[in-house]
Structures are given as structure tokens and as C-alpha cells.
């Protein structure tokens, strides 16, 4: 090596490799490993922002609905979002059933949005499907809007007595979360 050193500046010595493939193999391998390693380390750095275990653990809510009279509704919370539970009157059920489904922006019948035999219990998220405000109509004396259901004050979306979008900018009906009646009066949401 000494002779090479005297003859050629070291900076250029590597331009005349004896076996170029082996060097490439090792360098590429090392760089590829570094890349894979960086990618694997990025996963926890990204995943730490997903809901943590304590948040996920609170993803079911049990509700006692026995105190809600026909025509009344309550606001509860489900995954830190407002949840509307409404006991529909026979008149409200009839109004909802009278609407031709084909006229709706998001066609669904009331029966599809409630449980069998429990058609009077309308359980929806209280989150307007437009941009996430809480619609009015669940509280005592609040504006129920032109269709008697819910009315979003932010941008004027109006929902009917089945929580379906009828006018305004919202694209779809108020979401119905997964839920089941674990007794006649207790609902478990989530």
C-alpha cells in the first residue's frame, strides 16, 4: 500500500477498485439496513399518536334509559362525543315512516336505524355529519328544526325524527353507533 500511497493521492485511490461488486454489496447492504432500521424506528414514533390503551378501554358506555318519557331525549357521551337517546312518540314514528326513502339524500328507513321491537328508541351520535357541530333538538325547548328532529345551528343542516338529513349542507344521516339492549331499559353502546 505504501507504494500506492506515494504514487496516487489517496482521495483517488478508490477509483481503481480490484473488485467493485463486493464493495457495492457491502455499502448497499449497510445503507439498506440503516434505511430499514430508520423505518422500523419510525413506527413507534407514529403509532404513539394513536389512541392509548386507557382511551380505548373507555369505548363502551352503558346507559339506563328507563327515565326517558316519549317525546323526550337525553344527551350522554360516547367516546367523548355527544350521544343522543330519543324516545320517539308514535306521531314522530309515523312522520318518519311516511317519508319516501327514495327522496332522501342518504336513503335509510327508521327501522334500519333502530332495533327490532324498539323502534321508538332512536340512538345517534350528536355530531352533525357536515363539520361536527352538536345539533340542537335533544335538549328541552331546543329548536328541532323544520323536520321536527334535530337542527344544526352552525350551517343550517336539518334532520328529521329519524335523524336523517333532510336539508342543508350535511352529506349523511346522523351516525348510529353499534349498540344493544342488554335489558329492557339498559343500553350498551360500543
Amino acid at each position: 500500500m505504501a507504494t500506492l500511497d506515494e504514487a496516487v493521492p489517496p482521495g483517488e485511490a478508490h477509483d481503481a477498485p480490484a473488485d467493485p461488486r463486493r464493495r457495492d454489496y457491502l455499502s448497499i447492504g449497510a445503507v439498506a439496513f440503516a434505511g430499514v432500521g430508520a423505518g422500523v424506528v419510525a413506527l413507534p414514533l407514529i403509532n404513539q399518536m394513536s389512541p392509548s390503551a386507557d382511551v380505548l378501554a373507555q369505548s363502551t358506555t352503558e346507559l339506563d334509559v328507563s327515565a326517558i318519557q316519549p317525546g323526550q331525549s337525553i344527551k350522554s357521551t360516547f367516546r367523548k362525543q355527544p350521544l343522543f337517546v330519543r324516545n320517539l312518540t308514535p306521531k314522530e314514528i309515523a312522520e318518519a315512516d311516511a317519508v319516501p326513502v327514495s327522496d332522501l339524500r342518504d336513503p335509510e328507513t327508521l327501522a334500519q336505524r333502530t332495533k327490532e321491537g324498539k323502534a321508538n328508541w332512536l340512538i345517534t351520535l350528536g355530531v352533525c355529519t357536515h363539520l361536527g357541530c352538536v345539533p340542537l333538538g335533544a335538549g328541552e325547548g331546543e329548536n328541532k328544526g323544520p323536520f321536527g328532529g334535530y337542527f344544526c345551528p352552525c350551517h343550517g343542516s336539518a334532520y328529521d325524527t329519524a335523524g336523517r338529513i333532510r336539508s342543508g349542507p350535511a352529506p349523511s344521516n346522523l351516525a348510529v353507533p353499534d349498540y344493544e339492549f342488554i335489558s329492557d331499559t339498559v343500553v350498551r353502546v360500543g
Binding site: P44, L45, N47, Q48, S50, S52, A53, D54, V55
Partner: peptide
Amino acid sequence: MRDVNAGWFL
């Protein structure tokens, strides 16, 4: 340490 995803590692 207990609940955050990979929190113990971080």
C-alpha cells in the same frame, strides 16, 4: 409507560 402505544420505549 403503561397506556401510550410504545410509550415505555420512547
